[in-house]
Design a protein around this nucleic acid. Structure first.
Length: 768
DNA sequence: TGGGGGCACCTTTTT
DNA sequence: GGTGCCCCCA
């Protein structure tokens, strides 16, 4: 997208330009997608075709042409980030009028608002709490225990997953197809689902899936309420439509059915969330569900160079069941997609890190470089390498701030202060930090609570009064209750960040962390500090807790110049000048599990993931694969991904600077020969890669063996030792960098920078 | 009650 | 290989 800042309407009004000037700079298709406001519209927006610009301009256009007022627009996204981005960009066009966009947000936040208004219809009160996955699993665990179901064989996580799946499909317990519940605990799935929902109702709580599901119940049982929303929402806009699940789809269809002014924007080729319930079919059948729908294709790509685009398009062409788009660009030329094969994961990370250093020296900023991996276990090799070379990097994703144990503990304290009857919060912290109230006491307490219909806190009071606990436990419990009461009393008079600080200090939570010698305790303390700070931005404790449950992460400033390491999934929607795509090996990418579980469908989703990866690149994309990879500590031999061979030859350049492979397309020809590659007993290196290694002059014996080691000096046997000179820097896969101190026949003595010890290892020494 | 050892697990992720 | 969980023992 050429970077023409869109003019603000307020500016235009002042300067008196012709109305509609914000449409300038749009190409014909984009313009049509903006102006086709009446009736159903499906915008098929390929990668890099200016989708967000179209979305925001369309909203601005509806407002500017007076067709609707801000609060009459419903605009849904999947992530908070996307919602923020959209609001930000609309504000840039129309100014403060954008503040009136009350119904711009994620599916869940909008559903939560609707549910707050009509909670009573589904048996909740409007101050219901939204529980997260952790609470969900603990609740289910209790249910399983109460029902005497073996939680080893039937894990809470499993049932939580099933329930989530059912909710994504729009099934309430009474609407669940009988076959669905039969897979869990001898046909008790449905009954357990019902019990779970009942329990949530008692707690006045709901989980994420419920937000949408309860909305569906409200809309279908109360036509009057639905009609109210039909009146309200004149225009509906949906981003990332290919990622909608059945429940979201039904929700949209219900809301859109009257006015039909619904515009869905998406790309079937970028549907990568099938495993969590997204239905590509929703996009494929749009025209059937909304007869007379206009379909607009955005095919001009403003992001990538010709070769990158052609490589990505060639790859995705192997998928069946696409709506089909032909992306094109005026950016001719550019570099071809690089494809390289290397020996193993460490060689791969070394190669990529070297190239990043080179690119940086040549003037490329670190932040313009991204490494996109299939799974997070692949990240570690890069992190280790970057730490060693002192290359700044950030890992995007990872454990979310609000999901960290210490943060949730803090929240549990706050929730319990806020509402004494929050049993889930009570259970979480009654013995955190350890205060001598063990499992026996807690389960006894819960038993009393259940028997008498009291909340856990109230039951605890009863038990303390009843004087039936051992003295020590009784004191501990009554101290805890006394503390809670004190904090509750302090609540009115104390600002909520201070309240949390007080609680953390007085409960002994921070002290326990300070005493903890674990590697993470320092970070945890810092996280808690950050938490206390972030609370200041909210007026009340209620407002803060509400925010936390829907927005599961903090806004972090992204100003720092660092290489971005992330999964392909979290890269969607982003772009970088230089993109590395490591680990293109069968089984890793495409992921074996994906293929095993979903067959051809799974494979196609993996291919879309590859497509997403390639299309993130503006200028350069570099794919790599290895012959040997350690997965969970085990050496495995790898074949290049089929996706490597699916890249069109004309747009690819294969090389083997560092590797043992010729690499690149066509190299799978060698596959048949690899099948009879020698196997060396139980050796980790029974891989087909040996063939190549041999061709490069390494024999199996070249697996060097550390035969001696004392402090930092070790000798290794290495047939090609003659290639090394005394004083030369070498890199050893196990010991890192070192310097050659002597060469004697096949023996290489090396002083390593870090200590090594006597140990037989089976890796190569390479020149480093 | 809670610490330590043995053992099974192990994609992708948002809300 | 690293981690989280369960069980057993002190």
């Amino acid at each position: 997208m050429p970077d023409v800042p869109a003019p603000r309407i307020s500016d235009l009004a002042r300067a008196g330009p012709p109305p509609g000037a914000y449409l300038d700079g749009l190409n014909p298709e984009q313009r049509r997608a903006v102006e086709a406001t009446e009736g159903p519209v499906l915008v098929l927006a390929g990668a890099g075709t200016g989708k967000t610009r179209v979305l925001t301009t369309r909203l601005a256009h509806i407002l500017a042409s007076g067709k609707a007022r801000p609060w009459e627009l419903l605009a849904v996204t999947f992530t908070n980030k996307a919602a923020r981005e959209m609001r930000h960009r609309i504000t840039a066009i129309i100014g403060e009028q954008a503040e009136g966009l009350r119904w711009l947000g994620t599916f869940h936040s909008i559903a939560a608002q609707i549910l707050r208004r009509h909670a009573e219809i589904v048996g909740l009160r409007s101050n219901y709490t939204i529980i997260d996955v952790d609470d969900q699993e603990r609740l289910i665990k209790q249910l399983l225990e109460a029902e005497n179901i073996d939680a080893k064989r039937w894990t809470p996580r499993h049932l939580a997953g099933l329930i989530d799946h059912w909710k994504n499909r729009g099934w309430t317990p009474d609407r669940l197809p009988p076959a669905e519940g039969s897979h869990f605990a001898n046909n008790r799935g449905q009954a357990l689902y019902k019990l779970y929902q009942d329990r949530l109702a008692v707690l006045n709580a709901c989980d994420f899936g419920d937000l949408l599901l309860h909305n569906l119940t409200i809309f279908t049982t109360r036509p009057d309420v639905l009609a109210e929303f039909h009146d309200r929402f004149r225009y509906i806009l949906v981003d990332e439509y290919q990622d909608t699940n059945v429940a979201q789809y039904l929700w949209l269809r219900l809301l859109a059915q009257k006015r039909q002014n619904v515009c869905c924007v998406g790309d079937d080729d970028q549907s990568i969330y099938g495993w969590r319930g997204a239905e590509v079919d929703n996009i494929l059948r749009f025209e059937r569900d909304f007869p007379g729908a206009e379909v607009i294709r955005l095919e001009r790509n403003y992001r990538s160079t010709e070769h990158i685009l052609a490589a990505a398009s060639g790859l995705i062409a192997a998928n069946k069941g696409r709506l089909g788009k032909t992306l094109w660009t005026e950016e001719t030329g550019g570099t071809k997609v690089q494809v390289r094969g290397v020996w193993d994961g460490e060689a791969e990370s070394r190669m990529i890190a070297d190239e990043i250093e080179r690119a940086h020296r040549a003037g490329r900023r670190y932040r313009d470089i991204a490494i996109l991996v299939r799974a997070s276990f692949q990240m570690r090799a890069f992190e280790e390498r970057f730490v060693l070379l002192q290359v700044p990097y950030t890992v995007v994703g990872g454990p979310r701030f609000f999901e960290r144990a210490e943060i949730r503990d803090a929240h549990a304290y706050l929730r319990l202060v806020q509402s004494e009857d929050d049993d889930l919060a009570f259970e979480r912290i009654v013995n955190t930090p350890k205060r001598g109230i063990g499992d026996t006491t807690v389960s006894r307490l819960l038993q009393v609570a259940r028997a008498s219909g009291l909340s856990a806190s109230r039951a605890a009071r009863e038990i303390v009064q009843a004087d039936e606990l051992p003295a020590r436990t009784r004191t501990a419990l009554s101290n805890f209750l006394r503390d809670m009461d004190r904090w509750r009393a302090a609540r009115e008079a104390t600002a909520h960040p201070q309240l949390l600080e007080t609680i953390l200090e007085e409960s002994g939570y921070t002290d326990a962390l300070r005493l903890d010698k674990g590697p993470t305790s320092q970070t945890r303390l810092e996280n808690l500090k950050e938490l206390v700070q972030s609370m200041g931005a909210f007026d009340t404790l209620e407002a803060y807790l509400e925010h936390v449950s829907l927005v599961m992460d903090l806004d972090r400033e992204a100003g720092e110049d660092a290489v971005q390491i992330m999964t392909l999934h979290s890269a969607k929607g982003l772009e970088f000048p230089l993109v590395f795509l490591p680990g293109w090996e069968e089984g890793v990418f495409p992921s074996q599990r994906s293929i095993d579980e979903k067959g051809e469908k799974g494979l196609e989703e993996e291919r879309r993931l590859a497509y997403v990866g390639l299309t993130r690149a503006r200028e350069e994309a570099r794919v790599s694969f290895v012959a040997n990879r350690q997965v969970y500590g085990r050496w495995t031999s790898q074949l290049p991904s089929r996706f490597v061979d699916e890249l069109p030859l004309a747009n690819v350049e294969a090389s083997s600077e560092t590797g043992y492979y010729g690499g690149g397309p066509g190299m799978n020809e060698a596959k048949s020969r690899w099948d009879d590659a020698p196997s060396f007993g139980a050796s980790s290196y029974s891989s087909p890669g040996w063939k190549r290694a041999q061709q490069r002059g390494f024999s199996p014996a070249a697996r060097n063996t550390v035969i001696e080691g004392e402090g930092r000096l070790v000798a290794v046997s290495e047939p090609s030792a003659g290639r090394y000179g005394v004083g030369e820097r070498v890199f050893h896969q196990k010991f890192g960098y070192g310097r050659v101190t002597a060469v004697e026949g096949n023996k290489l003595s090396v002083a390593f920078d870090k200590a090594g010890d006597k140990k037989v290892i089976d890796t190569f020494v390479e020149k480093g």
